[in-house]
Design a protein around this nucleic acid. Structure first.
Lengths: 343, 343
DNA sequence: GATGTGATTTGGAGCGCTCCACAAAAACGA
DNA sequence: TCGTTTTTGTGGAGCGCTCCAAATCACATC
């Protein structure tokens, strides 16, 4: 279609072959470099040339190769996020916050899943390094074998348990959140307040906040769970246990909304109405909490803000990789709905 | 560290520089091509050399560049999936099914989100084309501007509404599923069975199945919703409407589990107990349906099988791009839990 | 018209792999 | 022992971009 010459330079665009930057350049009557500038939205390209290039792109149905851009440039303009469980919806706000702050700067977000590991990849982080991501957000329990071998800016989001060397931390203040939950329930007159928790680091901090606040008020602590995961089923089991062992219990604080859903099921199975017979408070303010069936009072961990903070931390560290490691805590907030009532 | 010579060939591996295939080759005392073979798990490499290369990879902490591999090879060994809403969990099984069938063959899965579009990308499909994915799974309502301009094998999963030219279709038989739901409820003696539906193509088919089966049994159809999305809130509104307009209603079939959750909220707000006063059946068998609070009877659309079918369709089309377009329907199955009871 | 200055535009040299044709080594057979 | 296969291993040529230094252009000033 378009004439090009030489084996190293121009040649005929063959039918069926994907157009490349040279094809666009020829079609627009400019150099490949100019096309590259337009592609990257660089300033200092005359409007006429820019229009010509864009028209050629449109006409040829050209789509740039990100592989080539990543290889040639020194950056992939991609941020990798390590996620582990799609069923616990806390990540939705995190992703949105991340994207909102990164997209305007031309960064994309790639999600890696620990259960989806490829050949030779020990951890999802390896896969992201192979992708040559410019930064990594760890939104799971970090494990030691995840520690990036190379100096990719990394931030751990939502978890402060294991300090990843060189990684910033952005999380909501789970300890404060735990206190907030107890404060709310105690303020409603509850004395027998149970807590159902899970295995992770965030859950541990929430539990610590619960315990500190309970003790500060001279109330006895009642904790169940904490061994396995934080699924609905774990919440159900733990709440059942709590309810059966402690008949005087009037309130439950669940480590997250998913477990709270389980607790609601347990309450129903034990004939306890919410909120008349049992107050229930969750954590995360996930889409689940706002469901009409639950109208769950919850602690909003501000996952959107955590995502935004993670994005900024990454951006800062890209500018200055030697800056001191830094922890940012977002202040959580109580969201009162209909699952809590006076004792 | 390792000595190399010439500007085009070998040079000293500088500290801080990411090792490349040449560094590994030197460290292992083999050629870069041999390293490439080991990387790709190719046969015909002697065990001794393979071990040497693997040891060098480990020692240098080498991670291959996927960008370079994609650019140099003619395939990225990546399948792109277009997803639109993380809150509706039907995609979880789909992703698992896809991955399960693709990972053993060395394919990775990349998720694209319509709301996360980059510069110059009109649709998420453009982003995937730029990634040079070897195949695309559309797990949303396809729109015309998504039609790939190039011949990337494409399959639409879970939706048969809009035929994407050249794309195979894998879905569960939503029409049959709708009939199954009615059959179950009618079998329990229900006569006044309402349906709450959403805007999408799958929902439309489920509604058609509902209507066909209802009419076949001489029952009057009662449908609400169908305008907006299929969120919990839409389900709540539609169910409220249905309940208020039709006091004799004894059962509701929701277009998906998420809407069923909304319907459960509406029933609670209208003082209708489930299943004593109102039977409720959902669709998808998502993690939500098994929650103890709902124990939702649902139609299992076999999303894992749909994912597996999509993977196979993609694989087949990679082998033979000219094969005729093909639709595969997975047979859905009733899952009885505790949200339905005799009228 | 010559000269200068900043705004545009351009060719060349890779980035780190895979693919391919061929070379070398090993295994086999007569 | 010397072909002849079969198995392994190798160098060279790109893939399609970005980056960079240098060339060219546009226009104001002398």
């Amino acid at each position: 279609m378009w004439l090009r010459m030489g084996n190293n330079g121009w040649m005929t665009q063959e039918a069926g072959k994907r157009p490349n930057i040279y094809d666009v350049a020829t079609a627009a009557g400019v150099s490949k470099s100019l096309v590259s500038l337009v592609l990257r939205g660089a300033p200092g390209v005359s409007p006429a040339r820019r229009a010509a290039v864009e028209e050629a792109i449109e006409r040829l149905n050209y789509r740039p190769s990100r592989a080539a851009a990543t290889l040639a440039g020194n950056a992939s303009r991609t941020i990798g996020v390590v996620l582990d469980d799609y069923r616990n919806l806390w990540f939705v706000g995190l992703l949105a916050g991340l994207h909102e702050h990164l997209a305007p700067l031309g960064f994309r977000v790639a999600v890696a899943d620990p259960s989806f590991n490829a050949h030779l990849d020990r951890t999802p982080v390896d896969g992201l390094i192979s992708l040559r991501v410019d930064g990594i957000v760890i939104a799971t329990e970090p494990t030691e074998d995840m520690f990036p071998g190379l100096d990719v800016p990394t931030v751990v989001a939502g978890n402060r348990d294991l300090a990843v060397p060189g990684a910033d931390i952005v999380a909501n203040d789970d300890l404060l959140g735990g206190r907030l939950a107890v404060e709310h329930l105690a303020g409603l007159g509850h004395r027998d307040i149970g807590h159902i928790t899970g295995g992770g680091g965030a859950a541990r901090l929430r539990a610590q906040g619960y315990e500190a606040e309970m003790r500060g008020r001279g109330l006895r602590t009642l904790v169940a769970g904490g061994h396995g995961q934080t699924t609905e089923s774990d919440g159900y089991q733990a709440a059942l246990h709590l309810l059966d062992e402690n008949p005087t219990l009037t309130a439950i604080f669940a480590a997250n909304d998913t477990m709270a859903l389980g607790a609601a099921g347990a309450a129903r199975d034990r004939g306890r109405r919410i909120p008349e017979d049992l107050s229930l408070i969750g954590y995360d303010n996930s889409p689940l909490a706002s469901a009409n069936l639950l109208r769950l009072t919850t602690i909003d961990g501000k996952n959107g803000e955590v995502g935004a903070g993670a994005a900024n931390a990454l951006l800062d560290r890209m500018k200055d990789p030697t800056a001191a490691v830094h922890t940012e805590l977002v202040t959580p907030e109580l969201v009162v709905r209909a699952s809590t009532a006076p004792a």
